[in-house]
C-alpha cells in the first residue's frame, strides 16, 4: 500500500509552495465503504486526506469541472493518469497546469463485493497488499484482496502512472495483457443471440440516472446527445429502445478514449455491466490500430485523426 504520510507531505508541499491552488484527492466518507472525493486548498486540511482501495472514483472526472487555467494537483493511479493524458490530448486541460501525484495501484475494491459477504453494517475496513479486514455487525472478516477487486482492475495492464510528476512508492510490474483480451474473447465466443440477450438484460435495468456518464472523465460534453431535444438522437424514456440507445452510443463515443478504469460500472446504482462494451472497443483499438489510450499526452486516438494516406477515403 502506498505511504499515506508521503502523499500528505507531497500534498502539503504543493499547496504551501504554491505549485498548485487545489489538490484533488479523497477524504473519509461518513461510512468506511465510501471515501469521498475532496478538494484540498489549505495545508491545514490535508491531515484529513485518505487514500485506500475503496477510493472508487476516477478523479479525472473533476478536471473538466474546474477551470482550464487553474493550477491543479491530483492523486492519480494508472487509469487516472491515462485519463488525464486523454483529456490533455483532447485539449480539455493544459498539462503544464497539472501536477500529478502518482500512486502505483493494486486495484480498486468493489464495495458491493464486501457488502455481499458481510452485510451492509460495516464498521471498519483495513487492508494491506494481500488482504482486506472488515469489521461489521455480522462479525469480523478477512478476505483475499484479489477476491474483492473490481473486474476492470483484475484485467488492468497499466497499474503504475505513466507520466506522473512524482511517484509515491515503487512502480509495479505491468499487468497481463492477455487477461484483458480474454475478457473480450469470452464474450465474443457466445452466439449473437446470447450476446444480444446479455446486452438487453443489462441495459433494461437502466434508470437513466447517468451516473455512468458523470463518473466518466471522458464524458465532458456540455450537452450530451441524450439531452438533445431537436434532433432527438434516442428515445427519452426508460424503454428498451431508449436504454439500449443510451448504452450503445455512450460506449461508441468512448472509442480510443476509454482507459477501462471501470468508474462507470462502479457508479451504477443498478449494478449494470457496461465495461464489456468499452473493453471490446479498447481491444479493437489495440489490435487494429496498435493504440492504447493515454499512454502519453500527445498521441491522438485513431478515430480523431485523418491523413492523406488513409486507406479508405471518404469517396463514394
Amino acid at each position: 500500500m502506498p505511504d499515506l504520510d508521503a502523499i500528505k507531505t507531497e500534498t502539503k508541499r504543493l499547496l504551501s509552495e504554491g505549485v498548485v491552488e487545489v489538490v484533488v484527492a479523497f477524504k473519509p466518507g461518513d461510512t468506511p465503504l465510501h471515501p469521498q472525493p475532496a478538494f484540498f486548498m489549505n495545508v491545514d486540511d490535508v491531515d484529513s486526506l485518505v487514500y485506500d482501495g475503496l477510493c472508487q472514483n476516477n478523479l479525472a472526472t473533476f478536471l473538466t469541472r474546474l477551470p482550464k487555467s487553474q493550477k491543479i494537483g491530483m492523486l492519480v493511479r494508472g487509469c487516472e493518469n491515462r485519463s488525464v493524458n486523454a483529456l490533455v490530448v483532447e485539449k480539455q486541460k493544459l498539462r503544464e497546469n497539472l501536477f500529478l501525484v502518482g500512486i502505483p495501484c493494486e486495484g480498486i475494491i468493489d464495495w458491493r463485493k464486501i457488502v455481499e459477504r458481510t452485510g451492509e453494517a460495516v464498521i471498519a475496513v483495513h487492508e494491506n497488499d494481500l488482504n482486506v479486514f472488515v469489521d461489521s455487525r455480522a462479525g469480523n472478516f478477512n478476505f483475499n484482496r484479489a477476491d474483492l477487486l473490481h473486474e476492470s482492475c483484475l484485467r488492468c495492464t497499466h497499474r503504475t502512472p505513466v507520466n506522473a510528476d512524482i511517484l509515491i512508492g515503487e512502480a509495479l510490474p505491468e499487468g497481463d495483457l492477455t487477461l484483458a483480451a480474454t475478457a473480450v474473447e469470452v464474450f465474443e465466443a457466445h452466439e449473437i443471440d446470447e450476446r444480444y440477450a446479455w446486452f438487453h438484460k443489462e441495459a433494461e435495468r437502466c434508470i437513466r440516472c447517468y451516473a455512468c456518464r458523470e463518473a466518466c472523465p471522458m464524458c465532458y460534453c456540455t450537452e450530451c446527445f441524450v439531452d438533445h431535444i431537436e434532433p432527438r438522437w434516442t428515445e427519452s424514456g426508460a424503454t428498451p429502445a431508449g436504454m439500449q440507445g443510451w448504452h450503445i452510443v455512450r460506449a461508441f463515443h468512448q472509442t480510443g478514449r476509454c482507459t477501462d478504469c471501470g468508474a462507470c460500472e462502479r457508479a451504477c446504482p443498478m449494478d449494470i455491466k457496461m465495461t464489456y462494451l468499452t473493453e471490446k472497443l479498447n481491444h479493437d483499438m489495440r489490435n487494429k490500430y496498435g493504440f492504447v489510450t493515454g499512454l502519453d499526452a500527445q498521441t491522438q486516438p485513431p478515430f480523431a485523426t485523418v491523413t492523406l494516406d488513409d486507406k479508405n477515403r471518404f469517396s463514394v
Binding site: P37, C209, A211, A215
Partner: peptide, 13 residues
Amino acid sequence: SQSCLGCGVCTFL
C-alpha cells in the same frame, strides 16, 4: 456539493 457528480442516483432512488 463540491464532490457531487450531478447524476440522478439520489433522486431517482
